[in-house]
């Protein structure tokens, strides 16, 4: 993963609990900026990262003993690669959900309060890869770093 990545990789591991995930996401985002993640992509990366990590905490480790979430971020030439691994339950059907967003509905009481996580991840990434290997989930998110302007 490091071969074409001039700016190197950074790794962070934290317990799969909401408070640890919250501070872990903030730390990763700050360190990515220090490592040269362009400002115009920083917000998108943070949103997608948070949704993917929250999914691990809320779903992969639901009803099983929570262990760690391991995140490796590699800043390559035009691409940021983020690998998120955990030892929780596999994704249903062994593939990432399509991420069809919740319907807004027509009244306030009908408004959805969730169901946007995978939609946001898919909107903000160039590519998503998932595999189950040796009892681990490995989710890779690829972000395009080229300046749209």
């Amino acid at each position: 993963m490091t071969r074409f990545c001039d700016n190197g990789c950074l790794e962070l591991s934290f317990p799969a609990a909401e408070a640890d995930a919250s501070s872990g996401i903030a730390t990763l985002s700050a360190r990515l900026t220090e490592h040269g993640l362009p400002q115009h992509r920083a917000g998108d990366v943070k949103i997608a990262l948070a949704e993917a990590i929250n999914n691990v905490v809320e779903h992969a480790y639901s009803d099983v003993a929570p262990a760690a979430v391991q995140v490796t971020c590699c800043l390559c030439k035009d691409t940021l690669k983020v690998l998120i691994s955990d030892t929780g339950k596999p994704l249903p059907g062994l593939q990432p959900p399509d991420g069809i967003p919740s319907e807004i509905g027509s009244t306030i009481q009908d408004l959805p309060e969730g169901g946007f996580g995978w939609f946001l991840i898919r909107e903000l990434t160039r590519e998503i890869r998932y595999r189950r290997r040796r009892g681990q989930n490995e989710l890779t998110l690829l972000f395009d770093l080229r300046d749209p302007g």
Binding site: A50, E51, I108, G117
Partner: peptide, 29 residues
């Protein structure tokens, strides 16, 4: 994140139909 968004939506619902929740000072993200 989407959980925080959901909590703001839930806050709007808690107000009931005849009260309104507006948001001010949104950062770009």
């Amino acid at each position: 994140d989407s959980s925080g968004l959901g909590a703001i939506v839930a806050s709007m619902k808690q107000l009931g139909g005849d009260r309104v929740l507006d948001l001010a000072g949104l950062h770009p993200v």
